[in-house]
Nucleic acid binder design. Sequence first.
RNA 1: GCGGGUGUGCCGGAACCGGUAGACGGAGGGGCCUUAAAAGCCCUGGGACCUCGUGUCCGUGUGGGUUCGAGUCCCACCACCCGCACCA
Length: 842
Amino acid sequence: MTDTSAPRVDQDRYDPQAIEPPIAQRWYDERTYSLSPPPSADRSGDDTFYALTMFPYPSGDLHMGHAEIFTIHDALVRHLRMTGKRVLNPFGWDAFGLPAENAARNRGADPSRWTYDNIEEQRSTIVRLGYSFDWDTVLYTCDPDYYRWTQWLFLELLDADLAYRKEALVNWDPVDQTVLANEQVVDGRGERSGAVVQRIPRTQWFFRITEYADELLDDLDTIDWPERVKTLQRNWIGRSEGAEIAFPTADRGKRGKPDEVVVYTTRPDTIFGATYFVFAPEHPLVAERMGDDPAFAAYLEEVSRRSELERISSMEDDRGKRGFRLNFDMVNPFTGEDIPAYAADYVLMDYGTGAIMAVPVGDQRDFDFARQEGLEIRVIIRPTTPDGELLDELDPDTMTEAYLGPGVMVNSGDYDGLPWEDAKERIIADVEAKGWGHARVNFRLRDWLISRQRSWGPPVPIIHCDTCGEVPVPFEDLPVTLPEDLDFQVQGSPLDQHPTWKHVLCPQCGNEDATRDVDTLDTFVDSSWYFLRYLSPNSEEFAWPKEAADAWLPVDQYTGGVEHAVLHLLYSRFVVKAMRDRGYLSADEPFQRLLNQGQVVMDGAAMSKSKGNLVVPGEVYDEFGADTLRGTMLFASAPEDDIDWADVSPTGMHKWLSRVWRLTLEHVAREDAGDAEDGRSVDELRKATAAAIIGVSEDLDAKKYNTGIAKLMTLTNAVLDATRDGSGGPVVREALESLLTLLAPICPFITEELWHRLGHEGSVHDQPWPTADASLLEEDEVEIVVQVNGKVRGRVTVPSGAEQAVVEEAARADETVASHLAGEPVKTIFVPDKLVNLVVKG
RNA sequence: GCGGGUGUGCCGGAACCGGUAGACGGAGGGGCCUUAAAAGCCCUGGGACCUCGUGUCCGUGUGGGUUCGAGUCCCACCACCCGCACCA
């Protein structure tokens, strides 16, 4: 390790601007924190640790949120290294995406140039802040060497029948001019642009993530993630259990016999209460039956207009259900009765089967609609308590809402008297026996739409040929690269409008009229597998080596923002499972443990340039240094809690670091002067050092950096007390060295510098994590709390390990205690070395 | 409506298995040093009361409960934050 002598303006003063940059630059230039041997060759097992942060999107310089993620992450990584782990700590950029394209369109920038310029800016900030990433494994998703393998991933999924193309009603974002996945639509708006999305039919590529719906749900129980995120994913996957049941039409259809319409229901037990039937307005049978009935056409028109308006006005109230009485009836297979058929906008074409049996008594929406249309509300359940005790019967005339609670069946033929759960089971069994349908699990999760009408992304590696259809680009021809001369000023997709790019020969038949797929893959495809590429970022033979994937996956600790709870995190889980089933790796999950760091806000509100409350990392390290920035963030709160920058004090952190600086230099000066004697308070300091080592170790293991720092401050105060008492010998040195090694993961620069000032050659970051003898903490005497009837009335000091009788006697000798002891205690609680509680009658 | 989470001094936050509530820091107040300032250092720091003490009472969102003892466990509620929501 080379010397870190920095230019020193003032020898005595803590000047982070002088000491930090040279050290930072050296760590970067010398690749100090690169893993050697590289991860692809390392299968050592036990002492390895894969630490990952969500890689940033390079849309400008880093913001405080990035600084927080990386600071938490870096403290973890540096600490783990000092405890002897071999840590894979890679970095990269999620470098494809719309902002680059927008810069190109609005300012004529070259998206690649724009992206790499931003990356350089971010890289220099990251280096400046002392984050110990492995710069040998760095990757960029917009690099053809990377997206070649993104395209390979697509072809693998295609081969596995997990990628397919279909026409569907998709979300069109009119501002970003592209389709979006369901996950990217929030409250009917594009999550990026905020524009109200339109539902349009379009032929697009999808990943069959629903194939893994069950596993994605069940395996949430096996990973150590915040409950919040797991809940979000559970909600998103939205599993429900029920049955599909076929209802015949009451008349004959086109084919000369009754048509059958399948409904999905989670409450088959309520089928005797199904008094009408509802189709989604767009249901094909409705179109077939209604033909071009002008009234119905008008209704359809109104519905389509209305649903858009509803999305805009956040659909809270005014949810009157627009219905249309169709020109036919359905038959309830269980009662044999004809029931009227409606179209209504509260039934959605793309959930379940697009048609429902309506049970007003047991479903609020059906109830509302029945009241509105004057339809029969038939009571088929008698409410009970959860324990099965009978409650009052329901009265259809006076009910004001549907009954959703437990009960026993009534008016339900053979099923009368059964508790509803039993009835559900029996009815499903009977439905299956009669061939009317079957049990069925349904998911809210839809397949992942991956086509984007954008041009700064990996092209979909498909060639469309009139004779051969959709032809995958042969592996040897990957990557399908983007042309460098795209014109971003054109209307529509620049890739599509490029004069030559899309025209190719069909790889199968040589047809000259074949064209490339002009869409690109969703950026979330790029990021769904980058943690695998880190294992061999430069390999041209494979996306990742299986042996390395088996050695390093799942990622031991993943740190990043909660905003990716259902997007990136769900997609990555899907990709890992799919690749596992293709034999490319063995892990079931990508990320074993997830930490969602809190947000950095200002006065309770998100920071933004427009609000004028923006603080950027650069300002903070320019004024106080990177160590202060890092320390401030970690000391402010637990990693998962938000930090309000208005509430924290970089000044306080800087003051403390200055004190550490001064104490260390003063000690060095004392040693140099040959004046290094320990004084009478060294025992206290020795204890304080041991306590800090033990306490900080525990705190860092538990990622409680805030309390760890508090303990280091306490140790600093103990050093100060000792030196004021005249100490300046080996015990003080030991205390300072312990302080620096314990602080090293949090504030890497000042500790490195002071470590050298104390005369050490190597890096403090290569020091083993300190340990202490816990017996040092044992006291000869302990203070015991004395309670009377549970209230603290005094404290006594006794030899540690004192017997109850001794403690009790000492306690009763205390005046205040005695004054509260009216008579003999009826009971005494004794906790050795801690507390005695005398209970008297009262 | 459903699900998840959070409520502790002026502020950020501590508090192992139920055992001294408020560690550590910030802001504030007082002092030392200094011609002055900065820096540094020291003291103080939940509220109320009085007999001014090694004093009493109150105090961890609210109300109950369990316990010798509850911020911590149980029940009910309130407030706020986040997510989902016409999902059959």
